[in-house]
Design a protein around this nucleic acid. Structure first.
Lengths: 257, 257
DNA sequence: ACGGATTTGTTCGTATGTATA
DNA sequence: CTATACATACGAACAAATCCG
């Protein structure tokens, strides 16, 4: 190996995964074995493994070994009136999930801002973990004002849907005010819950729902395993773009000068 | 330093950036200096730098040094009828950009699929690079059928907007059919053009536009520096969610069983 | 224009800690 | 408990890019 040993190893293994020589779930040779195979030092092997783990192509487990990732790659349709379960089932994945925590906490700065409450005001915080075929996909926080929705936790615990819980509190119609998406490094707890590499990024999706008067009633924050999901915004948000009004149209990210 | 040297270094520097002790653009001490400061080996220092560079907090340049990143963090509003320039100006950034390449190429599998053409059919491919305050934000590919839009490149070269170019070819109204977002590792050329670390992820945004008959007329693929942008889907795609029809509503990623 | 100094990138070696089987 | 396998840490050398006299 020359001066690009780790890239060569990365690309070689990446190719073998892509071409099907290495099947999902397969265990890779151990580091000493890879060292012999590629006739290189341990650092180069580890650098390549780290890069592939970061992309989500490998799953590295201390004490066990390194495996070809077999996590699902799902298209998650946002903005449609479908539920998580339907969303997954339509793509052949088996949805599951669990409630990790459910408590009343003082609103953080961000939550207070989203819900238009005072910082520190009591809010219901629900944390769920959703999975596809048993593989963690998303950590979902939801926040509702505990004063406005006193029975929220109880209703949700009884198995009521979000919509039903809102209706029980007199809200019969509500709207999505905004959805934002950005990427960041996973915190260590998140990486653990999502069963992904420490250095792998997550996609953070934040939403605010408002009632018919425009008053915020709910805020949610989803932490998604970035390598396992693609978001699709389709259909519903099709807005006709009319070239007739010249200053109002942008289809591409057009910033020529 | 004990057994978590690199995390300690990472967190320490991360804190100093967050608290303003280290200002954007500041040059960090060199590796030998940091080694002495933290009384540790070079590997630990480099591991910490790599982690911070991956998050977009540091910019490492071989032969020059390591700097606190001062790239903009912008909210990019998608789906609105605003242009890239307006989008940036409203947040106080100075937009700029350049056309990197402009040619007719055979359609790749993905492009052919998006535009409903045969694989290998000739398409216009335009590559632009857009920047905010001189920092690269986005690499934007656009694809149009060269047969249907023979004068595309010429019109665009003359400074016509996408909309105007469409109109010149008889299309007076068009729609966004779908938008998808996912994350992946940047390729080396992309990392170079975006001036970001090799291991940093990018956000890939793909769109398909259709005419009034639903026929695809344009496809675009944006490669965004993930650490410099947050996408906001707002306003226009607000669809009333009516709890009255019980099976149709999902506000949270609700997958309880 | 060139060469040496500086700084980061890659590679090799080795030892020890920690989680798993 | 022992063996295996990955995680972290130390040290050293040379390559490549940049800077500066």
């Amino acid at each position: 190996m020359g001066r690009d040993a780790w890239r060569a190893i990365r690309d070689r293994i990446s190719d073998e995964i892509a071409s099907g020589v290495l099947l999902p779930g397969t265990r890779l040779p151990t580091e000493p074995e890879l060292r012999r195979i590629f006739d290189t030092g341990r650092h180069s092997v580890r650098r390549a493994m780290a890069a592939l783990a970061m992309e989500g192509k490998l799953r590295v487990e201390q004490g066990r070994g390194t495996f070809v990732e077999d996590a699902p790659k799902l298209n998650y349709h946002v903005g449609r009136r479908t539920r998580f379960r339907q969303n997954l089932r339509s793509q052949g994945f088996e949805p599951s999930g669990e409630t990790i925590s459910e408590e009343i906490v003082p609103a953080s700065c961000r939550v207070a801002d989203a819900l238009q409450l005072a910082e520190g005001a009591p809010v219901h915080r629900l944390l769920r973990r959703d999975m596809a075929d048993g593989v963690p996909i998303n950590l979902g926080f939801t926040f509702q004002c505990a004063t406005r929705f006193p029975d929220w936790a109880a209703l949700r615990r009884e198995g009521q849907s979000v919509t039903e819980a809102y209706r029980a509190h007199g809200i019969i119609e509500y709207f999505r005010r905004s959805t934002s998406v950005h990427s960041r490094r996973a915190r260590e707890e998140e990486a653990e819950l999502l069963q992904q590499h420490i250095d792998q990024p997550v996609l953070v999706v934040r939403k605010v729902d408002v009632d018919r008067h425009g008053v915020p009633i709910g805020h949610s924050e989803g932490i998604w395993a970035a390598s396992r999901v693609q978001f699709v915004f389709d259909g519903a948000d099709d807005v006709p773009l009319r070239p007739h009004s010249p200053q109002q149209v942008a289809l591409t990210t057009d910033g020529s000068s």
